[in-house]
Design a protein around this nucleic acid. Sequence first.
DNA 1: AATGAATGAGCCTTCATTCAT
DNA 2: TATGAATGAAGGCTCATTCAT
Lengths: 190, 190, 190, 190
Amino acid sequence: MSDKAAKKKQYILDIAKGVFAKKGFKNVTMKDIVEACEISRGGLYLYFDDTKEILLECLQGGEQKDDILEKPSAGEALAFYLNEQKKAILNNENDLTVAVYEYLFMCEETGEKESVIKPKIEKNLKVLTALLEKGVESDEFYCEDCEQAARNIIYTLEGLKLASKTIGVTEKEIDTQLLYILSGLIAEEE
Amino acid sequence: MSDKAAKKKQYILDIAKGVFAKKGFKNVTMKDIVEACEISRGGLYLYFDDTKEILLECLQGGEQKDDILEKPSAGEALAFYLNEQKKAILNNENDLTVAVYEYLFMCEETGEKESVIKPKIEKNLKVLTALLEKGVESDEFYCEDCEQAARNIIYTLEGLKLASKTIGVTEKEIDTQLLYILSGLIAEEE
Amino acid sequence: MSDKAAKKKQYILDIAKGVFAKKGFKNVTMKDIVEACEISRGGLYLYFDDTKEILLECLQGGEQKDDILEKPSAGEALAFYLNEQKKAILNNENDLTVAVYEYLFMCEETGEKESVIKPKIEKNLKVLTALLEKGVESDEFYCEDCEQAARNIIYTLEGLKLASKTIGVTEKEIDTQLLYILSGLIAEEE
Amino acid sequence: MSDKAAKKKQYILDIAKGVFAKKGFKNVTMKDIVEACEISRGGLYLYFDDTKEILLECLQGGEQKDDILEKPSAGEALAFYLNEQKKAILNNENDLTVAVYEYLFMCEETGEKESVIKPKIEKNLKVLTALLEKGVESDEFYCEDCEQAARNIIYTLEGLKLASKTIGVTEKEIDTQLLYILSGLIAEEE
DNA sequence: AATGAATGAGCCTTCATTCAT
DNA sequence: TATGAATGAAGGCTCATTCAT
């Protein structure tokens, strides 16, 4: 029956993810999730104690693929990576960015540590750094400190993502910025 | 008495700013502000209808100075600007970043528009663009599209700021990133 | 306005006392008191945090009179005292005995100490001991250790009281026991 | 399988007794017992409908022995009896006193009758009365109305027991009271 | 018999907001 | 203006009880 329970849990997480994507973190109550899932109040507590726990388990799911490195060339890989990021920035369905930031803001106050999120960011950083290093080796990119460059890309993308969730950003603006990032890496080729 | 009223309003705003800096936006209740200000529950409602209004008026206050452009050289001006940003990133006292993001996240949901914040960002962008253009003219910087470069700096700084409020960033990491930004502008000088 | 608040508080305590007398302690919820007082849910929390606090304040009120000692003779005083006890045992209106025991039982579990109740019992013991001593001096009573005799009376009365609240006791049975107590004190007169 | 069922029922009662001894009656939920017994929620309902039923069946068990009367002398028998009571008063393990009182208090409210408890008390009274009568016959005790004396002893012991469960009583205090009781029965011998 | 997931009622507590003074 | 008591809605949590398996 643990199998059935796991399915139910996953069902709740799937629905909850949509709720978090739509309403962020702070605004989501246990009641919201109960209603979205069309289960009973007590039923939800059988699986989760609070919204924090639900959000964190929502995040556990989406495993990152590091198969970008398997692309034939680093240039293609980076283009692919940036395009994925663009999609993520533009996509508002099922996007937990806002919820995650609201959660992290709350953690700062309460002093709780972020178990799930930091590792994801660090893994992301590693993959991107590796990608740049590969590009440098193959003379596709020029870059003195690949890790710093990778960090810079991540910060810029995060800034863009936040801007798109708040003040709004056009697709064109995103494209321009992505090109700007790329140009920084290939500018010195000449 | 409008004078007295204005003073009281300012008093409330001063205290409220501290509350928002400490607790963000979502966590702040009218009760919190009433208690911090040591005024009566009803008294607060004479001046403000809700926390949203209070936060927005808190933001009205801090007028930005565009006197950076008056620095002798664009290089010095940018260095000064980045140093100010660094201070802002490291400083946690009286910083409304988290509160503002929480507010903006909420606006997305409710569809309300951001009256105060967007103009500030745009003004900031204009000042920075002007600064870069000045630097290009004086051959201090190299940069093809100053506005895009300015935007990139702003996104990166925003990404850094958010990271510092959430997962944490060391001062050294900030310095490295600021140098990275600068290097992008002067790299092609050679 | 603190005067008005005090009145309201007293009003709540008066009603709450009736509720505790009727339902004991454990069965009384904040909701019960809210409804009995015909005030709002939040209104009650303005004055009291929980039912424990309300019960304890209910008990604060009834100050004990030690004017029994002013009776002309110790015999009369004891008769008066016992008669009062009899009335208390028979009376079920406004009697907090059951509520107090339920509260004390709960304290045992949670380890909380009984601030209000113990002093009352001890004062009661002192008054009764003094009464017996007076009776011994005036040769009305015979008794070797007045404090132990007083304690014995108190235990017996408490046993009777509990019995009357649980398995039931007839008035005649009470009379018989009170006479038994008296007879123990005057038996040796002869 | 009725045999197996009886065993399971007894198993539940054994565990439940410990739970009631520890937490009283009102605080014990069906969930508590389910967890203590490590059986399923539904499983408990196959045997018992509610905590009241469980408590009452717990009480059925402990059959009282009236073999005290078989002691050689009434004095010895009474001393034995009182010593047993003393042990019961001091012992807190497996003692259902508090639970029983909480249950009885609740019955008062709901008007339910106490099927198990009253007979026990009455049997106890009869045994003690018989013991005293035996003592009077053998000139060990002096006492005009043995039943009243027995009742008095029972009330006093009950008062002591309650005091020990609530405000606390020292062993010395118990001894003193037991001696006081004895002295009342033999005082007039002289 | 036995399990344990699911339901829903019930109580708790906190605040935004109003209003008489 | 200013106060702060009062209200009631909203959400949290726990359990008794049921029921499909």
